[in-house]
Design a protein around this nucleic acid. Sequence first.
RNA 1: GCCCGCUUGGUGGAACUGGUAGACACGACAGACUUAAAAUCUGUUGACCAGAAACGGUCGUGCUGGUUCGAUUCCGGCAGCGGGCACCA
Length: 850
Amino acid sequence: MSEKYNFRTVEKKWQSFWDENGLFAAHDHQDNKYYVLEMLPYPSGRLHMGHVRNYTIGDVLARYKKTSGYNVLHPIGWDAFGLPAENAAIERKSHPAHWTYENIKAMKAQLKSLGFSYDWKREIATCDPEYYVHEQKMFLDFLKVGLAYRKESTVNWDPVEHTVLANEQVVDGRGWRSGALVKKKKLSQWFLRITDFAEDLLSGIDELVGWPEKVRTMQRNWIGKSYGAEVEFKTKDNTLSISVFTTCPHTLFGASFLVIAAEHPVAQGLKGRKDVREFIEECSRLGTSEKALETVEKKGIDTGIRVVSPFEPTREIPVYIANYVVADYGTGAVFGCPAHDQRDFEFAQKYNLPIRQVVQPLVAEETNLTQEAFTGDGTMIHSDFLNDLLVEEAKKKAIERIESLNLGKGITTYRLRDWGVSRQRYWGCPIPIVYCNDCGIVPVPESDLPIRLPEDVSFDKPGNPLDHHPTWSKTICPKCQKPARRETDTLDTFFESSWYFFRYCSPKALSAFEKSVVDDWCPVDQYIGGVEHAVLHLLYARFFSRALRHCGYTTVREPFKALMTQGMVCHETYKTKEGKWVAPDDIHKKGSKAFHLKTQEEIVVGPSEKMSKSKKNVVDPEHIIQEYGADVARLFVMSDSPPEKDLDWSDAGLQGVWRYLNRLWQFVKEAGQREEKVLVLDDMTPIFQNAYRLTHKTIRWVTEDFEHYHFNKAIARLRELSNALFALEPKNDFEKDVVWFSAKILCQLLAPIAPHFAEEAWCTLNGKEVKTISEFGWPRANPSLIEDDHMTLAIQVNGKLRGEITLSKEASEAEIEKQACALEGVQRHLEGRSPKKIIIVKNRIVNVVV
RNA sequence: GCCCGCUUGGUGGAACUGGUAGACACGACAGACUUAAAAUCUGUUGACCAGAAACGGUCGUGCUGGUUCGAUUCCGGCAGCGGGCACCA
């Protein structure tokens, strides 16, 4: 057995070669541009499999496009602000900046060792003042045009730590570190008016044909445009009026109660009552997440208030305060129609409220209104002037009547809410605002930017370090020069990731970016990242493009022309008995049980979930790179699963990839170094003809697979070709020329996925190192070698396979019928009967029906 | 709870716009080489039935019903799993 393929030397050699020759530098203002981008990584400290998968997909694409002649922009950077850095500061006493930059250093080394074709000259870190200074300017510009404003909103408050908690940090209604019961608290915060663009963001989705349909649907649903009515419900004596938004005004005759949120002014006004006070208190422990709100057991409390049903002046219905009403959506009050809304149905059952059916199902299907609500289409009943109308018409007519009676109006609403960007945290971009006792809210003058984060902060005290820093927030009012106080909130980290793809185009610009360069490079031709970002990040980035365009920064409307959402890399989760997460690296398994490597404590094995830092179920790719090299890791993550599908991690198969590359290496060495010759098909034996044809077919297949991102299929094709070539036994120079040619093609097709290997093999086959493999261009298939002159037809009797025939492509239908019926397997199943019908699908099947 | 997906051999997956289900790989088993093991090479491998073997037969794409000459693919219902739900990124 000859020597193994030495990946250590080879990978180092080619990484420095690419680097020294500046092979991956993108050139501004050139034709044939292709911008490929992977989602900005958070520098958690180590690469995980999700990263490797994400960046390999991007790199294969970037290399394939570059080889095909495109001027490729393929940048990378760091989403460097965020909560984990502060947690590290609290837990390990390391400064967030120090922790972050150390992580970046480590992860950058890992990325480099994987041989990704990034233009490293364009690297950015969002925590760098040279980056965030521009978003401070953007914030001021947004403020000028009214896209940024201040309002009150509700947060999760940890009363022990005096901090705002992320929904993720609320576990069973308690703060994750303190264990204290969480309370809702109102804070005055900064918002961006994303709702101004709701309609444009919605209609823009239609143009995003390069996006997965599911993401487009999710975005449409998130924006949630709906047409309905705002209706006033008044008390009999007209002293109180509650405005209600509904998308079902046609069911007003079925209304049997009104529910309002605990935050609703009417509810707040009843706080004098002990039971109301207690109930509001209970609601405030629910937290701010929509999920908590909707899964909680539906509860309410009767206010004693009675309002009149708008269309029926004599009918009064009760008003309840309920825990399942969203305060920030619509008016924070809804009317309950238990017959036709499931939540209202449950509420009505619990409090014995009447269930009044007003929609009759179209089909006389069995609707059991004692069991559940009916929410389908139908005709109106028990509804006076709406009777016998279809739901759609009834809705229109109801709105007309509401407007003519002056009880309200028809309105279009969106589920989308304005984007709250204030965070009560240290490790984020400071908001450039000063609060002055005399002048109020004063923007920091642009000449004073950037407002830098102070470095001397302490995380010993609870709360935001910026808040209790002795001097940082003390400043002078830019207007009146009297002492004033800085805004101590920082920006949401989604702010950074909403425009970084513009910065990559001109990363050293003194402004945020150069308009002409951005207009050239953008939109991003292919964006690649996890589905988990399908709504928020992608919507915010789309909003930013519009907002920045509005402020004159760019002309780009949609930032991402095509989107590929890779599936998540999942892994089993592990927890100690106390519920602390444990990493797979710290576990050893005995049968179905798992134990901690250090403490030997038994570990609870949980379901396979998305690999994430917080659950610690991450697999470190480092040992794969160390043991097998970058190409094996790259080939492996691309091999089996299609990119958009979730991947349940397992180590099985790594060995197989390693064996394959070694086998291929031997093959390349045997093929050796030869001269380019003209190959003539007619001179070959059938075996070599087939191999030669297969080589050309593989070029076509792999190219098509790359175009459609079916990398796993491309690899299967390459394995197929490899298997065919390995089996050849060339006996003379001519046959060796065929093998040599095929070996070269194989290397070129493999190059985007396993670039180090391909470069080295290319040298072995060509005997020179003057160019890299990508500079030879992407191979082209000879179409005349791909078409076969015969076809294989599967023969069915009544849809069941009974045989197969091979005949010329020119064969007539009569000929096909004759041959098919003559088959022994067909005759046997005809059992003497004559065919009723024969269906012929060219190139595929013949179905004989009896 | 709401929105969006996914479900094919022991495993990952393939099957182009409804047309031969299981390409390619992993694992397993058997054999060759070896004193032995590793490595490597060769072969078998959806389940069941029948058979000495060859040739065969039935079932089979989460479950269930439908459309069709023909359904993994289209439609209805159900189940299980995953993602998102606005302060994790």
